[in-house]
């Protein structure tokens, strides 16, 4: 039921009406689980709004939804309609009149229909092809292009710049070694970050009982913002560039690894949410949740440096 609330946006009444047939309930939940997207997914609130408003496809596109999200909107609404029919048949009454966003679907040309996964052009494709053809200079080019990204991934997980520099050699040698296995199903940079991430995780395991990057690892439920005094208007004017860099780096390094690496890839390395999720082997919702938590924890750590001194010490925190 938790899955339905979280991923589908609601628990349809039919799930209460069919409690004597748990096998059917399970099959319906499994079907939903298979069809709802794990990548580029709509949020629960977005699904709820789409179900209630019956927004058509063109409007969704105009509002900036990706084609994957539009597809998920159609799937979600179709299921809601299906459940309503089922509920009526069972005498359970309908949840609400779910409206179909697909009514303008015929406006799309066949090329625009998203029954297949679309891929974007990889800016490294030409260089990778040269390398796979035996041109070693292409590898040097790829290393130069992505050294910062690999370094930040390694620091993000290892939490130690010296060890990260040391792990760079392992990472790039593994990349070279496994190049034949790279089939271009993801971008080269995503594949590279996933190798860097695995290299760092392996080192962590060897070093100490590791902090988990797994989705199943519970988040720190107890975290609540405590520093709730207003910040100065222009924090960047308070410190020199070097001081600011030091403040941020210290704050980031103190984050638990699962938040640190996501914040490092998304906010510092500016990877897209989907690319970060793919590289770390996590789902979009997990990446978004960790990114938010990481940002809030970093905000908490930085706050004492940006709150005007006259109003310090009156924190009441967010409790409700």
């Amino acid at each position: 039921m938790l899955f339905l609330r979280k991923e589908f946006g609601l628990v349809p009444k039919v799930f209460s009406a069919q409690t004597l047939r748990p096998d059917i309930l399970q099959a319906e939940a499994d079907a939903l689980r298979l069809l709802l997207l794990s990548e580029d997914a709509l949020s629960r609130a977005q699904k709820r709004d789409i179900l209630l408003a019956g927004t058509d496809l063109e409007t969704l596109r105009d509002r900036g939804f990706t084609e994957n999200q539009v597809l998920e909107a159609v799937v979600t609404t179709s299921f809601a309609c299906f459940f309503n029919v089922l509920q009526t048949g069972l005498g359970a009454g309908s949840d609400f009149a779910a409206k179909m966003p697909a009514k303008k679907a015929h406006l799309s040309t066949p090329e625009q229909r998203h029954t297949a996964v679309t891929t974007s052009v990889d800016p490294d494709a030409e260089c990778v092809a040269r390398l796979q053809g035996g041109d070693l200079n292409a590898f040097e080019e790829l290393m130069n292009r992505h050294s910062q990204r690999v370094y930040r991934t390694l620091v993000g997980i290892l939490g130690n710049p010296d060890e990260a520099r040391d792990a760079m050699q392992d990472t790039f040698l593994k990349v070279f070694q496994h190049l034949a296995g790279f089939e271009g199903r993801s971008k080269f940079s995503t594949w590279l970050v996933s190798i860097a991430s695995n290299t760092a995780i392996q080192r962590l395991r060897e070093r100490k009982p590791m902090e988990s990057l797994d989705e199943s690892a519970p988040d720190e439920e107890g975290f609540r913002p405590r520093q709730v005094q207003a910040w100065t208007d222009d924090p960047e004017q308070l410190y020199s560039q070097a001081e600011m860099r030091s403040l941020i780096e210290n704050g980031v390094m103190k984050l638990p690894v699962k938040y640190r690496v996501v914040l490092m890839l998304r906010d510092i390395e500016q990877l897209g949410i989907e690319e970060a999720a793919s590289a770390l082997g996590l789902g979009i919702p997990a990446i978004k949740a960790r990114l938010l938590r990481g940002r809030l924890m970093l905000r908490e750590a930085l706050a004492p440096h940006f709150i005007p001194s006259g109003i310090k010490g009156s924190a009441k925190g967010v409790t409700n």
């Binding site: 207003a230 780096e249 940002r295 809030l296 970093l298």
Partner: peptide, 20 residues
């Protein structure tokens, strides 16, 4: 305050070249 300071946090993190 939380929204404002979170936005400022994000801005200084993205604007300041860190972990170079």
């Amino acid at each position: 305050v939380l929204v404002d300071s979170s936005r400022k946090t994000l801005k200084i993190v993205t604007d300041t070249g860190t972990f170079d």
